[in-house]
């Protein structure tokens, strides 16, 4: 059995962080703030956050802030909830939430709640339960959840529940592991998990584990169907648009979404954890560091994060535990929520 190559992954992340001109970095330029969250959280879980120039990162993060209070994916980009959460999470990692004008940021987020309780991602009105999760989590980290109508927000998420126990992005939309993570986590943070049919959803989620030990994101996603972009649904809009691919159903990124959801509803023992650990370890690039979607594919920061965070949820020894709902290391959550 292989082991987690902490040093190599740390080196890989720091290299990518510095690289700005190769093709991948250019394609992902508009979501660099998401990338920073993935990379830095991975480093923190592995106990390597000290290797990063903290002041440099924070000053760059703050330059991504727009006058409205929201953050863009990079300097000069429009503000959006997706990147606002990443900014808050990165600052929380460094224990620097106080550099924010908290009322300004929280007003931006609260201003995006709609009459029906849902949230738009930005002023252009795209509605999605991902944005409900992001708003609830962001405001919780800022201790400003009272700025929104939590009851209505929860009600909207419930209206996206499907007969298979899962959740979609809007009422009537199909269940998907990433979307389920967002909805279950939002309900967890608001203390509303009694709305979830834990046995029904738990069975749907545990059936995502396929023979290889890995997980897929939806039932019967056939190996010959390209699902590369389904996976970026949760935190980011897309990373992989350029890669035309035909991939097998199980991928490392699902390990996070399925695992964290199963943990929050206390049904994680329904999957074979040992097999999943092995699957993730097999996806490591043993030479240059980084983790890929499946064994022998090219690595990226996104999957390195989901792989390491997944191992953390699987109680892999030697790395920090991560909180399944806040998607931050448990010690960071304790610091923010319990006042250390």
């Amino acid at each position: 059995m292989g082991e987690l190559l902490v040093e190599k992954h740390a080196k890989y992340i720091i290299t990518v962080e510095k690289r700005k001109d190769d093709f991948e970095s250019v394609v992902m330029e508009h979501l660099r703030l998401n990338g920073a969250y993935w990379g830095l959280t991975t480093l923190d879980i592995m106990g390597k956050l000290g290797a990063v120039e903290q002041d440099e990162v924070i000053s760059w993060v703050m330059q991504c802030q727009h006058e409205s209070g929201g953050f863009g994916g990079n300097i000069g980009h429009d503000p959006h909830l997706l990147y606002t959460l990443s900014a808050i999470q990165v600052l929380a990692l460094f224990d620097k939430l106080h550099v924010l004008d908290i009322d300004k940021v929280s007003n931006y987020i609260a201003g995006l709640q709609n009459e029906d309780g849902s949230f738009s991602g930005d002023i252009w009105g795209e509605v999605d339960t991902r944005f409900s999760y992001i708003s609830i989590l962001s405001l919780t980290l800022l201790h400003r959840l009272d700025k929104i109508d939590v009851g209505k927000a929860v009600k909207y998420i419930i209206s996206c529940k499907n007969v298979d126990g899962g959740f979609g992005c809007t009422p009537g939309a199909e269940s998907h592991a990433g979307q389920i993570f967002c909805c279950v986590a939002a309900l967890a943070i608001t203390g509303s998990l009694h709305h979830v049919d834990k046995d029904l959803l738990g069975w749907w989620l545990c059936e995502r584990q396929v023979k290889s030990g890995g997980l897929n994101g939806r039932p019967e996603k056939l190996p010959d169907v390209c699902c590369s972009c389904d996976i970026v649904i949760s935190i980011s809009k897309s990373v992989m648009s350029f890669i035309d691919s035909h991939v097998v159903a199980s991928q490392v990124c699902y390990s996070w979404w399925v695992l964290s959801s199963l943990i929050m509803i206390d049904r994680v023992h329904w999957i074979d954890k040992g097999k999943l650990v092995q699957f993730i370890l097999d996806c490591q690039d043993k030479e240059n560091g980084g983790i890929s979607d499946r064994p022998d594919d090219a690595v990226d920061v996104f999957h390195t994060y989901f792989g390491v965070a997944g191992l953390s949820l699987l109680e892999y020894p030697g790395i920090k535990p991560i909180d399944p709902a806040y998607a931050l290391p448990v010690d960071v959550v304790n610091r923010v929520m319990l006042g250390r």
Binding site: T140, L145, V150, A188, I189, T190, G191, L193, I263, M264, I265, D266, V268, D323, P324, A325, Y326, V333, M337, L338
Partner: peptide
């Protein structure tokens, strides 16, 4: 795994 199924300082 019971962290969010009980009333705690971590949920609203």
């Amino acid at each position: 795994t019971r962290r969010y199924l009980c009333s705690s300082p971590l949920n609203h």
